[in-house]
């Protein structure tokens, strides 16, 4: 990867970080709840008699367990992505690009 490309990637990641940090810096009176929670409120408003007819068969007992499971999901994905890129980078380095 050329130096220029690496710099572009770093710059793009910084832009992403800026987009995500901006609301945290500017909005102070919000807990950043999930958008589906907000949708539940909208449903309660426009369809006040609606009763959900099913419940999740299992729900994490609390926020900690839930964040554990979300971390697990991200970790599993990252392992595969990291393995893949590790393999591809090493292949290019040791075997040359076109022989793979």
């Amino acid at each position: 990867m050329s130096k220029k490309r690496i710099m572009t990637i770093l710059a793009l990641i910084l832009v992403c970080a800026a987009i995500l940090i901006f609301p945290l810096m500017t909005i102070h009176d919000s807990e950043f709840g999930g958008a589906d929670g907000a949708a539940e409120e909208v449903i309660a408003q426009i369809d006040p008699t609606y009763e959900p007819w099913a419940e999740n068969i299992w729900a994490p007992p609390g926020g900690e367990t839930e964040s554990l499971l979300f971390c697990l999901q991200a970790a599993l994905g990252s392992v595969v992505l990291g393995f893949g890129f590790g393999y591809l980078v090493a292949r290019k380095k040791y075997r040359g690009e076109e022989t793979a």
Partner: peptide, 14 residues
């Protein structure tokens, strides 16, 4: 804990 957890798929039963 009361803040609805999760983000944005359609909720079960809705």
């Amino acid at each position: 804990l009361c803040v609805p957890a999760g983000a944005m798929h359609i909720m079960e039963g809705f």
